[in-house]
Design a binder for these strands. Structure first.
Lengths: 123, 123
DNA sequence: CCAAAATATGAATAATTATTCACATATTCA
DNA sequence: TGAATATGTGAATAATTATTCATATTTTGG
């Protein structure tokens, strides 16, 4: 979030049906915490590198250096992005020797991914 | 996107199974354009204001000033965000008199929205 | 046509963030 | 143990972006 939201009221002159509509919707609004969390999930998936990581992990679990080679990026860059995915519980990991293998956390991630793919391909 | 991706190769010493895995995955990778478009859809939904707008529009079509009142934000701020949603075809509009009424573009938006809601509520 | 209302937009600013670089930590194996 | 490998992380930087402010555009009613 950027700044605190400013107040403002009675934008429309034509208040006849509007005020009633607003009142009905206010009751159905998402609370701020939920809104924030929703935005965060999407924000996390809103980066090409993380999309590429998730797409690769849909196939199989991979270690940092696999991803690093596959995406032609430094292990450091990959690790930073994996941390973000980890912290939002989109991926989980398993340690094996010196390597750390990452995999998708749950089916929601895949469903979200595929829905977005449908959306952009439907044109 | 931020910068051009740097090259780097042979991250892992243990190249035995890795190289084979990488080659298999390279063939299944998303092309750059698709990856970018995917990320953009999510990025667009990755903002609390836009999430709140989309959630309101799930209920019914609304004009800029309705949204402005409902979300306690200036018409200008709302209009800027609606433009982004418009340009990515997440919302469409219909003009009526001085007002412009916005509505969700298609069912994918709702599905994406609800999937994300499921994800965050499942803990 | 004119004034007012509703929406749109460009520039500016403050905040966020993806990557790099340097370095730290952890793990294996000789 | 110590060197090497794999990964993690903090700070810095460049790029992106949400909101504000001022102003433009569009539409209606008189």
């Amino acid at each position: 979030m950027r700044k605190t939201k400013p107040r403002q009221s009675e934008q429309c002159e034509q208040f006849e049906p509007h005020e009633e509509i607003i009142q009905t919707l206010v009751g159905k609004s998402l609370d701020e915490v939920t809104t924030q969390k929703m935005a965060e999930v999407f924000k996390v998936m809103g980066d090409p590198t993380r999309i590429a990581i998730l797409h690769a992990l849909k196939e199989r679990e991979l270690c940092v250096c696999d991803l690093s080679e596959l995406l032609h990026m430094t292990p450091s860059a990959i690790s930073h992005q994996l941390r973000i995915l980890r912290h939002h519980d989109l991926v989980r990991y398993r340690k094996k020797g010196r390597s750390v293998f990452y995999h998708l956390a749950d089916h929601h991630v895949i469903t979200l991914f595929n829905q977005a793919l449908d959306h952009i391909q439907e044109k």
